[in-house]
Structures are given as C-alpha cells and as structure tokens.
C-alpha cells in the first residue's frame, strides 16, 4: 500500500511547487467550500430567497402596478430633483415615466444588496466557519502557502456573489422588460446606469463585503458571530446607500463610476490588510 508522493525528490526541499499544482490546490479549496455550502440549507436559503425577492418578485409587482395605472404621475417627485438629473425620465412619454423611474433607477441601489449579502455570508462561512467547525487546524497542517489559502477563500466568496448578481440581473431585466412591454413597447433595460452598476459597482460592493468579513472573521469564533459583527458594519452602509439612492443614482455616469472606484479602493485596502494578517501562526494561535 505504497504510492509515490509527488515531488519528494531529495535535495529539492525548498523547490517551489509548480504553478499548476498551486492552482489546483486553490481550486480544490474553492470546490470543497462551495460543495459544503451547497449542502447547508441555513446558508443557501437566504442566498436564494433575497435575490428572488429583490430581482424577480419586486420588479414584477412594481411593473404590473405601473403598467396597470400608467396615468399615475411621478412629475411631482421628479420636479423636486435638481434640474438636469431627472431629464432622462421627464423627457419620456408620461405613461413610461413611472416604470422607468422605479425599475430603471430606484431599484438599482437595492440590487447592490445581493452581491454584498452573498459575499458577506460566504466569506463568514469560509473564514470564521472554518474555525467554528474546527476544521481550520487540519487545514493548516496541509501543504499550502498562506497566500494561496487566503486567495482561495476570497474566490470562494467573490465568484458566487458575482455569478448570482449577474444571473439575478438577467432575470430582473427579463421580468422588468416583460411586464413593462405593454407600456413601453421596447426593451428599456439595461440602461447605461445599470451597466455601470452591474459591471463596476456590484463587484466593488462584493469585494467590500469580503473585506469587511475578512476583518471581522479574524475576531469572531463562529460564522454567525461574524455575520452579526459584519452586519453591524454593513447594514449602516446599506441604509446610507438607500437614503442616498435617488440623489445618487439619478446622477450622471461619471459619478457612479467614481463611487464604484471609491468602493473598490476601500475594499482592496481592507483585503490587503486582511492578507497581511492571514498567516498560519496567527490563525493557529486562535484555533
């Protein structure tokens, strides 16, 4: 019952592992974590429920309401906004205004909850959950550089957050366009603003959720504790974003770009700090 362990050639003690092998190990961690997550309902359910509510049910209800009462005026509301900001909407035919305002603009910031929540929940599971399940120590005893392990954990949280956001947006655009068809007679989504949200701001928000949870998970003992701590940091951000929603997202694209850039900078700073602290020694000292 012997097998040759690869690359145990004598004298090659410190030879770096081949790049492909390191890549395989990272993929193994990501695949393992995602398999495990898929099997725990407590994690999967909210991750499916929230996007379904926000990106399918909500636009459906709003779209149907707007299409069935096209005469409702949004001019009062639009009139209170700074001149110029509301132009793209006020220039539309009246019956199109409400559906474009809500599904085209007002839901955009709400949509960001999806990448934020998913990356945060998965990061809590990947970082603090490993401690909680007492699997961290045996993981640390495997031959994998700290950096690669950290990277794998980031990918575990980031990729699904992006995937769900993008698939969710496709569903959202389909639903919103479909229910608005009787009024619009054209596809109005995605708008340019939505494209910026999807491709630039949503990934930034996912990264920010990740950065916060990496930080918070270093202290938390359980994934739930990390979620609570993280929620205390992230929720105010959400409310701030929603409070600013109208003023913020009806503004022009350069501002949306700049906000995305700011979020990216903050997220990358948090992640870089997390990476520096993510060493075997400091992890093992907390096991």
């Amino acid at each position: 019952m012997s097998i040759a362990a690869p690359e145990l050639a004598p004298g090659l003690g410190t030879a770096p592992r081949r790049r492909r092998e390191r890549f395989d190990a990272i993929r193994a961690v990501v695949a393992k974590d995602l398999t495990a997550v898929r099997r725990s309902k407590a994690v999967v359910l909210p991750m499916l429920l929230v996007p379904v509510l926000l990106l399918i049910v909500l636009p459906l209800v709003i779209g149907l309401m707007a299409s069935n009462s096209p005469a409702v005026s949004v001019e009062d509301f639009l009139g209170r906004l700074p001149a110029g900001v509301a132009d793209p909407i006020t220039s539309l035919p009246r019956e199109e205004q409400m559906v474009v305002l809500i599904n085209g603009y007002l839901l955009a910031p709400l949509f960001l909850i999806v990448p934020l929540m998913i990356s945060a929940v998965l990061a809590a599971d990947a970082f603090a959950g490993e401690k909680e399940r007492k699997t961290l120590e045996s993981l640390l005893h495997l031959p994998m550089p700290d950096r690669d392990l950290f990277l794998a954990k980031l990918i575990t949280a980031f990729l699904p957050a992006l995937a769900v956001s993008w698939i969710g947006f496709l569903c959202f655009a389909t639903v919103a366009n479909t229910v608005a068809w009787p009024v619009m007679h054209r596809l109005f989504l995605p708008t340019k603003l939505w494209m910026v949200m999807i491709l630039w701001v949503a990934p930034a928000v996912a990264a920010l959720g990740l950065g916060v949870m990496v930080r918070v998970s270093a202290r938390a003992r359980t994934a739930q504790e990390a979620n609570q701590l993280g929620g205390a940091v992230i929720l105010p951000l959400i409310f701030l974003a929603m409070g600013q929603a109208t003023g913020l997202l009806l503004v022009d694209l350069p501002v949306a770009f700049a906000i995305g850039a700011g979020l990216w900078a903050l997220a990358l700073w948090l992640i870089a700090r997390g990476a520096r602290r993510f060493t075997r020694d400091s992890l093992a000292a907390k096991v």
Partner: peptide, 28 residues
C-alpha cells in the same frame, strides 16, 4: 497529522474529505 479533534468537514463524506486533502497534496 491526526489532530486532536479529527477536523473533518462535517458536510462532506468521508471519501470527499480524503479526496480534498489528496488534491491539496497534489496526488493524482
């Protein structure tokens, strides 16, 4: 290493736990 608490991932099967370690170790 056999750690004090076995440190297996509860959500995986026994075989999957072993396969994971093997992949990290680069075994074919």
């Amino acid at each position: 290493v056999l750690t004090e608490n076995a440190g297996l991932d509860e959500r995986l099967t026994a075989r999957e736990n072993l396969a994971f370690a093997a992949r990290i170790r680069g075994l074919p």
